[in-house]
Design a protein around this nucleic acid. Structure first.
Lengths: 194, 194
DNA sequence: AATTTTTAAATGGTCATTTAAAAAATGAGC
DNA sequence: GCTCATTTTTTAAATGACCATTTAAAAATT
């Protein structure tokens, strides 16, 4: 039963330490020793569990993607109308659990490094495709075809832009406020339908 | 007369080489030797002219900011109405000169590293303030006060998001298309006024 | 001749990863 | 419960690269 218990715990601890350490020091310069220290472990143990720094980063990014996916599915479960489901995607992106200084930082770090690391690029593309698909599906019922892609692209870039800006701020983020603004922006764009 | 001639030429060459090298390899891992090779010079000469790697990066970012500022001012000169001036800001951001794979890459690299380098952070803030100020000024005449900030934030984040996405693409960018889409997005948002 | 520019080579430091050995945990047999 | 052989986990230290920066001297320019 407990065969993989410690392994799972260490994976979790080290990924969390990676998120914190990358936020503090930046992907570019963070060292294995710093990450290990954050977790109260040694650099060697990271290699024992993950094999290499690159694989640790990949696992960390995969964790972030999973969190986002979960947040989206949770909200989808209770949404009834296309409009509610559109808002569910926005809300998920700015949920209390995800829209934190730490996670915004690390998302941007991964984004910036995706073009230079096969594995990160793959994950990044999978994620973007998923969000695109959700938006397309919901907008189909809400927007005329000739404006649909413009609106989708606009909303999606808006969300990315908000994260980018949030990553620059050192004041604590306000997810509730971000959700409210995102809803306003979306409704502003949808309004132009009438 | 020619007293600073060579110095100026080398500065220019090395900054251009930095843009290319960072695009190719990423800010995180690019080396002085790679940048120098790109310019057909030696790593030592970079230190002779710039003092350090960090100062070279700062100078490169400053160059990018100058290019953006110039592009904006050029377009402002011929714009007559607030609407035209708003579009001038958008067009500048997606001008043929600026909206290239190389420059999108390097902008994102700098953005991602700004939180970890005093000098980059300063430049990044100056730039964002300038764009914000322009948007605010033009939207004053175009949008009711209660929606103005929402719309500005939305447009600005949209622009950032487009750059972010562009930096991920390896297919050549299409600035004309980007300008057209940005105008559509802006008009879509402005429409909701009526 | 004096000054500026250039670079090969040296320097000193950092860091991911490996190694080898110690420490903990596990579990079978008593 | 307890013992001890086996397996898993942990880390200190070694290894081997890599790299920004400095130095010292050569080359080019003035």
């Amino acid at each position: 039963m407990g065969r993989t218990r410690i392994r799972d715990i260490r994976h979790e601890e080290l990924i969390n330490a990676t998120i914190t350490a990358v936020h503090k020091r930046g992907y570019a310069v963070v060292t294995m020793a710093e990450i290990a220290a954050e977790a109260g472990a040694s650099a060697a143990s990271i290699n024992y569990y993950f094999g290499s720094k690159e694989k640790l980063m990949e696992a960390t990014m995969r964790r972030l993607l999973t969190l986002l996916k979960q947040a989206m599915l949770e909200r989808y479960a209770t949404a009834k109308t296309p409009h509610e489901r559109l808002m569910a995607v926005l809300d998920a992106n700015f949920s209390d659990r995800l829209f934190t200084n730490e996670q915004c930082s690390i998302w941007i770090q991964f984004w910036a490094n995706a073009p230079y690391a096969e594995s990160l690029q793959r994950l990044h593309r999978i994620n973007r495709s998923r969000v695109t698909a959700h938006f397309r599906a919901e907008l189909r019922a809400l927007v005329a075809e000739d404006r649909r892609e413009t609106l989708r692209e606009a909303l999606q870039c808006y969300m990315d832009g908000v994260w980018l800006e949030a990553a620059q701020s050192d004041a604590p983020l306000n997810p509730a406020q971000a959700r409210k603004e995102a809803r306003e922006v979306a409704d502003l764009m949808l309004l132009s339908q009438d």
